[in-house]
Design a protein around this nucleic acid. Sequence first.
RNA 1: GAGACCGUAGCUCAGUAGGCAGAGCACCUGAUUGUGGUUCAGGACGUCGCGGGUUCGAGCCCCGUCGGUCUCCCCA
Length: 445
Amino acid sequence: MPPLHQAPRGTRDFYPEDMAVRRHIEAAWRKASIDHGFDEVDGPTFEHLDLYTVKSGEGIVNELFSFRRAGGESTYALRPEFTPTLARMVAAKGASLPVPTKWFAIPSFFRAERPQRGRLREFFQWNVDVVGQGGAKADAEVIAVAVGALERLGLGPGDVQVRLSHRRAVANILARLGIAEDRLPAAFELLDRRDKLEPEAFARRSGELGLAGDTLARFDGLVRATVPVSESIEGLVRAAAIPEADVIDLVEMRSALEAVGIADWCRYDLGIVRGLAYYTGTVFEIHAVGAVERAVAGGGRYDGLIELFGGAPTPACGFGMGDVVLGLLLEERGLLGGADGHAGLLPRPDVFVIAAGSEAAEQLLLPLVTEFRRAGLHARHTYRATRNVGKLLGEASRSRARFAVILGQELERPEGPQAMVKDLLSGAQRPVLLASVVKEIAATA
RNA sequence: GAGACCGUAGCUCAGUAGGCAGAGCACCUGAUUGUGGUUCAGGACGUCGCGGGUUCGAGCCCCGUCGGUCUCCCCA
């Protein structure tokens, strides 16, 4: 026998129950997107390699699966993210797109990283973007879609939290504290690593940026404090002697978030900056409350990016949410199926048809199943030939079907052939004329 | 890319000093000639991740390799 093959490192096989989980998550993403007025798009699974070096530089190449066709000239890469494709698609359509353009996608992505918890080499990620529209309302709209999907999956403000900040507000504060403009990127990077650094290391690196003494204390206090959006961010910055005007963008976000009813999911957190250089305004991450897990989602405003890919200057805002971390969170909270486990997410048959032994019953089995299917019902049947109705009903029960239809003795009734219809929830059963079984079950199921 | 731990039945795992590879659950059959998750009896189930080495003998020790988990790097 040839040896068994293994799936490549960091990839997953989706057996039926895994697939049911994946579809469950995707369905929530898709439903939330569509309800919020977004249209679904997709692009190729691989792109020209240089599409990815435009934004991220040559360093990105090590993180990609790239390849060249045998004998070919072009180098391609499996897509590691959607934004370059989106920017390319937007730039290609130019001014013919509506304003705003609201798109979402649920593609698979590939990254040549070492897999670890919450992080694989192939994964699915929901991307939602509003293109062509600036302002706090668009930012809040994008966050509301993310929250809508999480809510649909059974999570609440007690489970997950949107941590919200704003690049411009943080830049204003940093400038106010005396950080030179050319040091801003380094300051953002330091902020992003805040939680990973020891306090001493954080203080030392802050010092390298020109912060010391009282200024450092103000900086430290600001980036470590978080405030519910419903409370006063103005108070927080005033306490650090920062003019309220510096954080006007965050103040505007409050009313936008309140208007779409998700303010109670959100906290201001000035330590959230996102590592990426291209964010220009609102930035946010969604985290499980009290978990050390990596972010469930992250995104923000990137007004310069479409232009970077050759389009007209276009404001845009979006986020990505991966299936891996989200799946871990839902699993941990018991939100992936009830008592049946993941099997609870599989489609339930409307009817399970069994033939109890006789030749006549077996002859009728497939035609009846076919009739059920033509009526639009999810019908399954036994493949076994036995008179043991107990076994067959056990099979019907394990299939989680709503009804069992037994073809057997009742076919011989003088008033005409009948089937026994059993309600598998209540256990009640009654004979029904064979000719009207499909109609009756279709009316109930 | 660097380091640590792990890999035994479909699943969860035990396996002592190197000496016949085990348990529970799940599965199949029967008790039960037509009534479902219970009970009882029986049954099937293994390249011990893979390859090599040491040994009279390896699930166990050694080397390598593949995969998983975790930390670092990175995180679009």
